[in-house]
């Protein structure tokens, strides 16, 4: 995991001059410039700092089981994603393993998503579509558990929390490479 991420970093970083060389990386004194803005309080940062990183940083306390997730999914997700996460009409969440190199790839959480933590981050920030950020941490962990289980990634008795979720290895974890364009040129 670490190896691949540094690979990406190096590749994207190669697109431009390193920050350290631009002068902005010399960590100028805070507030040394225009004296604009004001220090953010810890409470302000905490209220907005909702992202979850691939290492699990940002995951809140709480836990959820596959069984609980099934109930939350049926009540709050199935109307758009279908009763089993396959039927839609919204993005298909389940299945599609082995299709990425075919003429009709099916990109789902199970077949395509490289990080389990992204599932928590996204469901918490943007779902359900009509009431985003309304699910409690236990509900988000539970829905995450149910979707991962339906994709055959975790067992039925698995419990998802801030410790277990980042440890879940996604099937398509190695399915991404950095930008290698320009790859096609005109005559």
């Amino acid at each position: 995991m670490i190896k691949c991420r540094s690979h990406l970093l190096a590749a994207v970083g190669g697109l431009g001059v390193l920050v350290a060389c631009t002068g902005s990386g010399e960590a100028p004194q805070e507030g040394s410039g225009y004296g604009l803005g004001r220090p953010a309080t810890e409470a302000q940062v905490k209220a907005w700092d909702i992202d979850v990183s691939p290492t699990g940083e940002g995951l809140p306390p709480g836990r959820g089981t596959v069984e609980e997730g099934g109930k939350v999914f049926a009540a709050k997700c199935a109307s758009c994603h279908g009763p089993t996460g396959v039927e839609g009409p919204a993005d298909r969440l389940v299945g599609g393993r082995g299709t990425l190199a075919t003429a009709k790839p099916i990109k789902t959480v199970g077949s395509y998503w490289p990080y389990s933590t992204t599932l928590y981050d996204y469901i918490h920030r943007a779902m359900p579509y009509n009431t985003p950020q309304s699910l409690k941490p236990d509900e988000v962990y539970a829905v995450v558990a149910w979707i991962l289980h339906r994709n055959g990634i975790i067992p039925e008795d698995a419990v998802m929390d801030a410790t277990t979720l980042p440890g879940v290895q996604m099937p398509n974890r190695r399915g991404f490479l950095p930008d290698s364009r320009p790859d096609v040129k005109g005559e």
């Binding site: 994207v12 990425l100 991404f176 490479l177 930008d179 364009r181």
Partner: peptide
């Protein structure tokens, strides 16, 4: 960007 071999390109910003 999913390529024919099933591998996707990531951070294809330009």
């Amino acid at each position: 960007d999913l390529m024919p071999n099933g591998i996707a390109r990531q951070f294809t910003f330009v």
